[in-house]
């Protein structure tokens, strides 16, 4: 198939499925996490990789950091800046990402 025809097919497909946005961007706050949490497991750091992680684990961890139930160094201070909905959205997005 010629690229231009293929593209046209893609456009038709996107329009017909009624996709809300052609651009998949990280939800608010999520992009900042990879300032510390490695984008790839090949990067050796003391920080938990978030990519592909069980979303419930992420939500629980952040909520416990926020409440003070789980001791943290900076995550206790950062978690206080996020609502439950934001945390859930970020966790779901990271869970769906691939290394």
């Amino acid at each position: 198939m010629k690229p231009s025809i293929f593209l046209a097919a893609c456009v038709v497909l996107c329009l017909s499925t009624g996709a809300a946005s052609a651009i998949d961007v990280a939800p608010a706050g999520a992009a900042a996490c990879s300032g510390c949490h490695p984008v790839s497991r090949a990067i050796e750091t003391p920080f938990t990789p978030l990519v592909g992680r069980n979303p419930t684990e992420i939500v629980t961890a952040i909520q416990e950091f926020r409440s003070g139930q789980r001791p943290g160094t900076v995550m206790d201070r950062i978690a206080k800046g996020f609502t439950d909905d934001e945390i859930k959205t970020i966790a779901a997005w990271y869970a769906a990402q691939k290394d």
């Binding site: 946005s21 990280a26 608010a28 706050g29 900042a32 300032g35 950062i78 800046g81 996020f82």
Partner: peptide
């Protein structure tokens, strides 16, 4: 800088696609 860069990139992708950029949240450590 890294946090801003990723927010700016997302906004640019949306703007180039004719969409409205999302309200961001940023972190510094």
């Amino acid at each position: 800088a890294n946090s801003q860069a990723k927010v700016c990139a997302a906004a640019l992708a949306k703007l180039l696609a004719g969409e409205k950029p999302d309200e961001p949240k940023l972190i510094n450590t």
